[in-house]
Design a protein around this nucleic acid. Structure first.
Length: 226
DNA sequence: GCATTAACAGCCG
DNA sequence: CGGCTGTTAATGC
């Protein structure tokens, strides 16, 4: 069973729960590790957990009929996701791949259902988060067809720094250029060029194995290489 | 042209 | 040393 301190450490939303609710959650969450490159679930699988990323990086995406990968979202340390599948109780429509060794927290369906039925704070969190995700997915429509490599990189970085999903994160993230490339669907070399160009524009600052965001609104709206 | 793979030297932890 | 970075060369769409 999770300690209360551990729960609060890995789940920002838990701070708003009543003591009874937090107690229920502590007993309904387990932690698990997935190795780099391994799938948490494939499209069509059942994966009946509401999931928090305790430490790591996950690509949330799908493979088209032509075999091309499309990233729907990058998920990094601190995020909780999967509420859509929990509420609908159907097989996952997408793949979840760990891009590096990743530790996750898994909430039982029964615990999720109990929270959903009993906790006002939890429901407020869910509505807020679903609303934010809706906006992100609307932006995806434009993303795949019209944006060049630097713009795709910019979008992916902006998603990783969304303050709704990552309320406690700093402006700096430990991530390699290869991992950014995997998320954006471009090669490492192309990711390298794009990052340098975004740095020249003053939107981010790049150092060894890490990215610092300097202008989040500009990253979100970024559309062209010029 | 532009992006991709392959390959390499240099750098950081 | 092992992993990451910046760059170049060859190849493909």
């Amino acid at each position: 069973m999770l300690t209360l301190a551990r729960l609060l450490d890995i789940a920002p939303w838990a701070a708003d729960l009543t003591p009874e609710e937090a107690d229920k959650v502590r007993r309904g969450v387990t932690e698990k590790v997935f190795g780099a490159g391994s799938f948490l679930c494939h499209r069509g699988d059942r994966f009946d957990y509401w999931t928090g990323v305790v430490d790591g990086l996950i690509r949330f995406g799908m493979v088209t009929r032509e075999g091309k990968g499309a990233t729907l979202a990058g998920l990094r340390t601190g995020v909780w996701f999967g509420e859509g599948s929990m509420l609908k109780s159907e097989p996952r429509q997408y793949d979840l791949v760990a891009l590096r060794d990743t530790r996750v927290a898994l909430m039982n369906p029964s615990t999720f259902a109990w929270l959903f039925a009993h906790s006002a704070a939890f429901n407020r969190f869910l509505v807020h988060q679903l609303n934010e995700r809706l906006g992100q997915f609307i932006a995806l429509v434009e993303y795949e067809r019209t944006l060049d490599a630097p713009a795709r990189i910019a979008r992916n970085i902006a998603w990783l720094f969304n303050p709704v999903f990552y309320p406690r994160s700093s402006a700096t993230l430990q991530i390699s250029q290869e991992e950014i490339g995997l998320l954006a669907g471009v090669s490492r070399q192309t990711a390298n060029k794009a990052l340098q160009s975004l740095q020249t524009d003053g939107l981010i600052s790049v150092t060894h194995n890490s990215i610092t965001v300097l202008n989040l609104p500009a990253l979100q709206k970024f559309t062209s290489g010029a």
